[in-house]
Amino acid sequence: MEEILSVKNIRKSYGDITVLDDVSLNVSTGEVVVIVGPSGCGKSTFLRCLNGLEEIQEGQVILDGKVIDTEKDDLFSIRERIGMVFQSYELFPHLSVMQNLLLAPVKVKKRNKKEAEAQAQELLERVGLLSKKDSFPRQLSGGQKQRVAIIRALMMHPEILLLDEITAALDPEMVREVLEVVLDLAKEGRTMIIVTHELAFARAVADRMIFIDGGKIVEEGTPEEFFDDPKTDRLKRFLHSFLYED
């Protein structure tokens, strides 16, 4: 498989506090990488470094063989290629669902409106929300909003999709409808880097699991080795904290 994204020894700190310390990762086309770890371990920051929402102090992010230079490169064209979905959906409240989907493709990328609309319809249909196309974000449930946020990112034809704890703000009964969309995307071979707390989902969707703790990658492996045969004590303890029996 062809390598699309490569992260080399990045370090990120806020003042004296180091959030990410010498983290490296390679992602191939079509691969689904799932990152887990305790709260505050730096996993969300890691995602945000990949599309330049956070600056890194050391190391490199290489997209498709080209080093991203946050100083020189036009970050916005890189962000078109790396889509991102947030925990809090962040739909634009002043725009309808359809307008949310069309804003970036039509207003920013100047794509043909008819064509973009057709794509939006198709995506809405696929996530079962075509009837909501003229609704406003506040009329939707959390799960519906998050499905719209996912296809809003897809509208830009990103090569990689970053999902940052997209089910963390949802009521339990809505988690499934969102995760099913993600599983569907994985099946069609989309490259994704996912940060989540849903371990069962992680196991189902991941090609590779990564455990970050204290700003470092502590362990990584296939879902089977990761969950059934963890090597490090820290991962064992982390996985254990999700179980109720002792």
Partner: peptide, 14 residues
């Protein structure tokens, strides 16, 4: 919220 700005940036807007 600043998250609105971030999500717009993440969509590739200048």
């Amino acid at each position: 919220s600043s998250a609105q700005t971030e999500s717009a940036l993440a969509l590739g807007m200048k």
